[in-house]
């Protein structure tokens, strides 16, 4: 294997794993739910994205091109904000304790059926 590509792959793999780990560390260490939401949904997504790019580069050597890893990356980047948004809404709906006071706007709470 070309040593330059190998170094690039090693860097991508380590960087990806590091971001994944940081996401989980944030999940454990941050004090309240809405803060915790920030860590895994985004650090982890970027980490896995970087690992998938590494996988794409690894399987693209020689004359074959492997791009389908892009599909998972794309899918994760589209779905992560949706999950984060829904979890934030669920937390607001349940009135979880947060360190940031929600804005005092007199608006009917959504998602409640009387």
């Amino acid at each position: 294997m070309n040593p330059l590509i190998e170094a690039l792959l090693a860097l991508l793999v380590l960087l990806g794993a590091a971001f994944t780990l940081v996401g989980s560390v944030g999940l454990v260490r941050l004090p309240d739910f809405l803060s915790r939401l920030h860590a895994p949904t985004k650090s982890t997504t970027l980490g896995v994205g970087s690992l998938l790019i590494a996988s794409g580069v690894y399987f693209s050597q020689g004359d074959t091109l492997s791009l389908h890893e892009l599909l998972v990356t794309l899918f994760l980047f589209i779905t992560a904000p949706v999950s984060a948004h829904l979890l934030a809404r669920a937390a607001l709906h349940l009135g979880l304790p947060t360190r940031a006071a929600p804005p005092a706007v007199g608006e009917p709470r959504d998602g409640v059926r009387s």
């Binding site: 809405l34 939401l37 920030h38 949904t41 985004k42 650090s43 997504t45 980047f77 589209i78 992560a80 904000p81 949706v82 984060a84 948004h85 934030a88 809404r89 607001l92 959504d110």
Partner: peptide, 13 residues
């Protein structure tokens, strides 16, 4: 989605 994707901010409602 863009706001939620960039770390540090999540669109909540």
């Amino acid at each position: 989605n863009v706001i939620s994707l960039t770390p540090g901010t999540v669109a909540a409602r």
